[in-house]
Design a protein around this nucleic acid. Structure first.
Lengths: 204, 204
DNA sequence: TTTCGTTATTGACTCAGATTCAATAACGAA
DNA sequence: TTCGTTATTGAATCTGAGTCAATAACGAAA
């Protein structure tokens, strides 16, 4: 090979590796692509890849983390001024917008972890926790009963599952789906609230 | 080693390997346990393991399949006589009973779906499809609009996510949760139905 | 009981792919 | 132009999946 080394700044190289790596892992699952092929496609030597990331898995995890953070950045509502019902609607809108604009990333993130890996799972799980907190915040309740927790997780599952189906097989336009989900989530939370009251009420 | 070979009937050995293997994969994720260690803990040689299963992954998949089939067997409603609303309730009851009685298996099954492995994902996905069909059957509609499909998948996500939270961190007793979920799912489907009507209606 | 055929079972071997490391060379500073 | 730093390389090593010829447990036949 005509050894034409290209020396880049550490951060630039690192960013590029993550950017290109994302595309690669998007096409092929973790254990379907070797470090040899990975480095070839990245146009660098295997050794260099190890210079930047301590292991194959760590490289992969770094990519998942990056996608994850980007997702959060794009879906978290900044203003806490808006009142709860509208905030939920805004949340749903951002969520669906992300799904619409980054379909493949969203699906990768949803499947998360290669090889049922515990760490990848943990990353995606902490992501869900943030979404949970967002939801919880729109309720204004400062103490969550078990029923309320369950309804929030239920809403999230509802949202995720619907979004996956929507991303995979299509459906109504975003605004339409958003309205539908808004009603569904509101209703689910409402039911959770009622049950929550019953829980705290002393038994007859 | 005092070579005390134990010769078993093929089917007996195979069943035992799957039974014990389930426990092992329950404790450790796929790539955290090698075929060497696996065979050691199974008290057999590595070669024998390969005699029964063509590869490590195939061994793992066989276990996932077994859990999966057992899950379906225990949660599918046999009688189609019961009318829809009661059938949904019965479905939810069976689902939650399984979660309650086989918590670790349920969680493994849930995670396998999130695993990067395409085949494991496919198994769990076909499982979900069966649950989808169950749900769809309780509706009695013979044609599903996109909105209706989305609501059913939404209900399933709601159910799964709630069940995972319940299995992980506890909550109300089964009957209580079942009633709550029943209301939630009914409501979600109801909303889906309304939207479904709007879809088929010509625009004003 | 003894012999014999079948095949469940073994352990040492191979091989692919992850990880390591000493040597090299691109770039900036002096 | 020289020199020091360190990004970059390729070959060597190590780990763990998968192979296979040899072994021995069991049942059947004598």
């Amino acid at each position: 090979m005509a050894s034409k080394r290209k020396r880049l700044l550490v951060d630039d190289r690192r960013d590029e590796l993550i950017r290109l790596g994302t595309k690669l892992f998007l096409k092929l699952p973790y254990d379907q692509i070797s470090m040899d092929e990975l480095s070839q496609r990245l146009k660098i030597s295997k050794g260099l890849l190890y210079h930047y990331f301590p292991s194959k898995k760590e490289f992969y995890l770094e990519i998942i983390r990056t996608i994850s953070e980007d997702f959060l950045k794009k879906t978290e509502v900044v203003s806490e001024e808006i009142d709860p019902p509208e905030r939920l609607k805004k949340n749903l809108d951002l969520y669906l917008s992300y799904v619409e604009q980054h379909r493949p990333l969203f699906l990768v993130l949803h499947r998360a972890g290669a090889s049922g890996d515990a760490q990848a799972h943990a990353i995606v799980e902490s992501n869900r926790q943030r979404v949970f907190d967002q939801f919880a915040a729109t309720l204004g309740e400062d103490f969550l009963t078990p029923s309320l927790r369950l309804s929030i997780w239920g809403s999230i599952g509802l949202l995720e599952s619907t979004a996956v189906e929507w991303a995979s097989n299509g459906g109504p336009p975003k605004e339409h789906l958003r309205e539908m989900l808004w009603k569904m989530c509101s209703s689910v939370i409402e039911i959770g609230m009622v049950n929550s009251l019953e829980e705290t009420k002393p038994k007859p």
